[in-house]
Nucleic acid binder design. Structure first.
Lengths: 363, 363
DNA sequence: CTGTTAGCGCCTTCAA
DNA sequence: TTGAAGGCGCTAACAG
């Protein structure tokens, strides 16, 4: 009895204390008090989990309006099991491919009523690790990630406990994680075959580090195409900066076996190589035929328009996010994750030497 | 007495209950129990707010290691005043300018030990509003936003209560909000003057809606330049799609007063107009001189290389985020917000008719 | 249909 | 230097 009296007393002094604090946000019990009901009635009214009489509903609603009450999502997340938040990790944003992926992931998440905590790793596995921990401490319900330098990434099941994880663009060693990738090898192989069909015998490959999954996969496609045609490889990994790339391009062009075509393996390398060719005054496609992985706005307006392998960026993000929400809904961690491989599209423009445009989908 | 006994009893049964639940994350009291100390000692050890004896520190540390304990950031945020989270709202991500802004905002936030909740409004003020509410419910410590269609945006002080807000790229009507923008008018004016210096008398302006702050500000710069030179305006607002833009460009070129130069007011309009010119077979800069607002990768490789007004995208995001953390640290909401205007840079390439490259900074 | 109780994990306050 | 008590706002579980 005395206990319950205590509670009542508290209930009575609470409002004045509240009013004392100028800016305290109204809480559910403020609403309950004003409406003359218990907090659970307010809670139920908000969640709709259990019916409340339409008359009380009215009163609660007006109390909410009057106080301009908003539920404290932090308290909910803390109390319950779900934070309604997912984490999103990508290397960086200035690659339009990554930016598009982010756009679709956030869109899907918001459609599910979720918030997205985003972070950029800059390909730094240590920063990635720190940020993953931060996300886990915030109890995100799941994580979508493009792992930094895939093999070295510390993104593995044990780190996440029972929090679902979907990686995309690059898989990871851990087979229990879901992964969404594209036909990197197939796409690269096909476009190099196309260059071969144009009659090229000496085709160079330019890329960033081979320790990046996508770059390596594309290199393997390039290699396969050359091997099948009995041609010799000529690959350079190390387009880490404009200067390095310029040096590499220069030495290739001055070398004894000057390539007649070049294939660049992602947007960044493409930019560096194009700049280098521009600097050196090389004319495409006559001096050198050109094709690259990753489409971008205005590839159409380059001089000449560029032949590319296009990835469905938004689609990749959408599929990865959907997969994650699937996992979250089911609540179980699979023994073996899904491995989804999306098709790419070859877009023929002029830089390869084609006179006519065209496109082919590679599954 | 009986109360305290109750608590002790609870303390004793808790571990077994815990061990019963397979996957419960260890809590601070688990650590405390294992280390044979009170929870406050663990708390103090973690925060470093009060010294603990090095011997207990040892024990606590090993307990933490053994249990692989991570503090529950959700509980902290709930309990305390700070969520160590900021909200970030942008229209969309496929504009590289916006993507770069996001990159720098998240980088700055992470440097401050903060997480970033990101959302895209797609220029939809309703979605923007909903997402702001979600962020507020999550008790973000502050918000950085590019408001959707600035005048109509519902981003105003009352909505946010005492949560600090910094808008960037576009200001809002509310003068109490901090705003970071660039020299839109000055930059546009200068580049149009440059076209005039090339001898052009009929210069067209192409843009999205004038209800977008940046577009309007750039238009005003364009207008000023023409007025000062005694020339006639020729503006089109409505580059909302490729089709609309193509139609507009076509009719301009067929009209009685065909422009000899065109200025496009952002990346999107630029892309549409370039595509239209390409489709119609217009040659730059001879048939038509060209200049645009917003630089982008590979503007260098367009045919011809494009003359642009470049905004310091990363810098804008960095300044906006820093301003926000300033506000968060001070904890007071200003009567009148800061209005920071950053310079832009004119980058002369070939599309304007220049033979030589060059650049000028406009403050 | 509605209310009461209890406690999520942490840290502030008070007491030793 | 350390510990105990209490409560942040919410909702599951149990009464009525």
């Amino acid at each position: 009895m005395s206990e319950s009296k205590d509670h009542l007393a508290q209930g009575k002094i609470a409002p004045s204390r509240r009013n004392g604090r100028v800016s305290a946000k109204p809480t559910m019990s403020d609403v309950a008090r004003l409406a003359g009901v218990g907090t659970m009635t307010v809670s139920r009214f908000l969640s709709g989990s259990v019916a409340v009489s339409s008359e009380t509903a009215q009163r609660v609603q007006s109390a909410i309006n009057e106080l301009n009450y908003r539920p404290n999502e932090l308290a909910r997340a803390f109390r319950g099991q779900r934070s309604r938040t997912i984490g999103l990790i990508i290397p960086y944003l200035y690659d339009p491919f990554f930016a598009n992926c982010v756009h679709s992931v956030t869109t899907v998440a918001n459609e599910h009523g979720y918030s997205v905590i985003i972070t950029t790793s800059n390909e730094d596995t240590e920063k990635e690790f720190v940020e993953v921990e931060r996300m886990l401490e915030r109890h995100v319900d799941g994580v979508v990630a493009i792992p930094a330098r895939f093999n070295e990434s510390r993104i593995t099941r044990p780190l996440f406990g029972k929090t679902p994880v979907v990686v995309f663009d690059r898989p990871v060693a851990d087979p229990t994680l879901d992964a969404v990738t594209v036909q990197n090898t197939g796409g690269a192989r096909r476009i190099v075959e196309h260059l071969i069909e144009h009659g090229h015998k000496r085709i160079a490959f330019m890329g960033l580090s081979r320790s990046l999954f996508t770059i390596n996969a594309r290199f393997l496609g390039y290699r396969k195409a050359l091997q099948d045609a009995g041609l010799e490889e000529d690959a350079f990994f190390g387009c880490d900066s404009q200067e390095d790339t310029l040096r590499a391009v220069e030495s290739k062009l001055r070398g004894p076996k000057t390539p007649t075509a070049v294939f660049t393996s992602n947007t960044l390398a493409t930019r560096y190589v194009l700049t280098a060719l521009f600097t050196l005054g090389v004319k495409m496609p006559n001096d050198l035929a050109f094709a690259c992985f990753d489409d971008f706005d205005l590839a159409e307006f380059c001089s000449p328009p560029l032949t590319v392998v296009r990835q469905p960026a938004q689609e990749i993000g959408r599929v990865a996010a959907s997969l994650l929400f699937d996992r979250i809904a089911r609540g179980e961690i699979p023994k073996t994750g899904n491995r989804i491989v999306l098709p790419v599209e070859i877009v023929l423009r002029r830089s390869c030497g084609c006179k006519h445009r065209g496109s082919v989908v590679i599954h």
